[in-house]
């Protein structure tokens, strides 16, 4: 752009049309490179959206979109006529917010601590170890947790050894939510730290040198150089994660919950799984999905707006 402007002002003015064609020509390879991604986006994200219509139908898969009866907002009414809908909604939001908050904090703190480690091999080893769990599926990790958290499991044995009471992590309704939150954080904090670590490497080292020269301690340097340096990344991560406020972690809960903790562990997604998928009520599932999508969209837009207003930060 800048180049084009400079050229046009100094020598004889070429027509606007010529400038435009020159610009397009120059950037054509870039546009072309964008095409596959665009096709993918349209094909896999926009095209399937027509399926949303089934949220307003009593969809019979074997009849198809055309022949399934139209029921308007019946599926939404059905969802909200469930006597325990608010309980499930509350569980969903509590668990999700807990995971977002503790997850982001844990990842950030871990990244900051790791950043201060000076021995490269030690740093690399710890970092690799920290995100190994991320690559285990919940089916496997959950199976391990069932044993680890059992009443005679390793954690309870440790608690008993130091004189504490054994906790029924997975069968006591009042402990279940923290168990979900901390097991998720345990599994994901290392991977979450990767982005923060990447942002940390982007901070200009001369800033640290300057701060050191001015007599700033390591703590002060972290506070005044490191944190402001990655503030945009933190804002970005928090903003993006707000869209997940209704995602409490379906896989994890499906693997770990049981009738004893329905009161605090049953979330919208597990209900949809039981009623929608196992009961072949696809319309109900679609209605919930649509609702979750709309709420997430509103939340993301809102947090984007707030980040712009309060932190004066724009992602795009």
């Amino acid at each position: 752009m800048g180049v084009a402007k400079a050229t046009s002002s100094s020598i004889a003015k070429p027509s606007a049309k010529a400038v435009r064609s020159w610009r397009v020509k120059r950037k054509l390879p870039l546009y072309l490179m964008l095409v596959p991604a665009l096709i993918g986006l349209v094909l896999f994200h926009y095209y399937p959206m027509y399926g949303i219509v089934i949220a307003f139908q009593k969809y019979e898969p074997l009849l198809g979109f055309q022949k399934s009866p139209w029921v308007g907002f019946y599926q939404f009414e059905l969802l909200f006529s469930q006597p325990d809908i608010w309980e499930m909604l509350r569980n969903t939001v509590t668990i999700a917010v807990g995971k977002i908050t503790f997850g982001q904090v844990a990842s950030l703190v871990f990244a900051l601590l790791l950043h201060e480690v000076r021995i490269p091999w030690f740093k690399r080893t710890i970092q690799s170890l920290s995100y190994v769990l991320h690559f285990l599926s919940w089916v496997i990790f959950g199976g391990m947790l069932l044993d680890v958290l059992a009443s005679q499991g390793i954690i309870n044995n440790a608690l008993a050894a130091i004189g504490l009471a054994r906790l029924a992590f997975l069968t006591n309704a009042s402990v279940f939510q923290p168990t979900m939150i901390f097991s998720e954080v345990w599994k994901e904090f290392g991977f979450g730290a990767v982005i923060f670590l990447a942002a940390l490497t982007g901070i200009d080292p001369t800033l640290y040198e300057a701060a050191a020269v001015d007599g700033a301690s390591r703590w002060k340097r972290m506070l005044h150089v490191t944190l402001p340096g990655i503030a945009p990344t933190i804002v970005l991560m928090v903003t993006l994660s707000l869209g997940g406020v209704l995602n409490a972690g379906f896989e994890q809960i499906l693997v770990l919950y049981n009738p004893a903790v329905y009161a605090t562990g049953d979330i919208i997604d597990t209900y949809v799984y039981r009623a929608g998928l196992l009961g072949l009520q696809f319309s109900l599932g679609a209605a919930v999905g649509l609702l979750k999508g709309i709420i997430s969209l509103v939340l993301i837009a809102l947090s984007y707006y707030l980040a712009d207003r309060i932190a004066n930060y724009r992602i795009f």
Binding site: L78, Q82, P83, D84, N258, P259, A260, Y262, A263, D266, Y271, R274, A275, L278, G279, L280, Q281
Partner: peptide
């Protein structure tokens, strides 16, 4: 059964286990 089944099964299992 199709519409209320999931809900009814939940309250039943929950009650028995509790």
């Amino acid at each position: 059964m199709t519409e209320a089944g999931a809900r009814l099964e939940k309250i039943e299992r929950e009650a028995y286990i509790k």
